[in-house]
Design a protein around this nucleic acid. Structure first.
Lengths: 173, 173
DNA sequence: CTGTATCCTTAAAGATACTG
DNA sequence: CAGTATCTTTAAGGATACAG
């Protein structure tokens, strides 16, 4: 994309994450790595990706310490690092969403533990309670800039939700 | 991108999901929607995105039933649907990964429940047990095609992991 | 087998002007 | 305010060919 916006400027963990794994291929490569794919050629065949693109992506993943290059120089193997493994919840969450909301049929792939028991749907918890997606709140965190705080200040209150205010220029600002 | 590969062909829930929310902006728009942003202009200012791009993305999100257009014709509000809300775990998982592995400083944003208690890090569970990212398994699911099954058959076993086989043409196939 | 090195295509992103 | 309509740019992606 032309002069792609630098997402890291957004001061947001999500943006930073997307900066690293947010393109079309990267997460699929990581998925393959979780599946056990290790070799350049196997990634290529599995994904049908061009070799130069794959090379770029693998290099980037290695630089970002998500994959590590092992094996011999001539026939490297790519394996997930600790940081790479830590992406599993995010990956599974995305897969589960697709399973639930996008698949007409049954899911093609199951995730299980060592004993073959299926991994359960992810739920958000806070101090022992379920978190409702409709009522979660976001707050300026300890790393919030003044700009971020200002942003939150201008946000409509949750109650405010529906029905456009429609009367003009009422909102504080 | 030129003739972007149709990820939906990969017969994978993750690929299908990325097909819908996998581009640079979409997840950030959804994040904003979770934050409480509702108006075209607010999305635009928050993200610094071009108007035509934003319009396209919003339209796509509405078509995909992740956002719904409410309010008046002239001043619509965009709100998350049930399907959109269901993306929260995936979004939080990505944010948490960024918080943990990418942020030098403290996270700029906190996610909390109604009482202000922080949302805990997501953990995978299977039948009551924690799932270890190093030992999870993927299996052909009920929706697996013959091709998918063949793919799994050729995968190296988990034990097989390190040290390249190095001796040539040994692998079954 | 695992990559570079080139060249080419195109769609995505941006800027801007304009409309209801 | 919420978009459409153009126009331009550019970098991502693909297709080879080639090298170690």
């Amino acid at each position: 994309m032309p002069g792609k916006t630098d997402l890291s400027k957004l001061n947001c963990s999500l943006a930073r994450t997307l900066e690293v794994v947010g393109d079309w291929w990267t997460l699929l490569i990581i998925r393959d790595a979780f599946l056990g794919v290790r070799r350049f050629g196997d990634f290529q065949k599995s994904l049908g990706i061009a070799k130069n693109i794959l090379a770029t992506r693998l290099e980037r993943l290695v630089v970002n310490d998500i994959l590590m290059r092992g094996g011999s120089e001539k026939r490297p193997v790519y394996q997930l690092t600790e940081r790479g493994h830590a992406l599993l919840p995010a990956m599974v969450a995305l897969m589960q969403w697709g399973d639930t909301w996008l698949s007409a049929e049954r899911p093609p792939v199951l995730v299980t533990d060592e004993e073959g028991r299926p991994v359960l749907p992810l739920h958000l918890r806070s101090a022992g309670d379920e978190v409702n997606a409709e009522t979660v709140r976001f707050h300026p965190g300890p790393g919030a800039t003044a700009r971020t705080r200002a942003f939150f200040d201008k946000l409509p209150l949750p109650d405010d939700s529906d029905a456009a205010p429609s009367n003009t220029a009422k909102r504080r600002r």
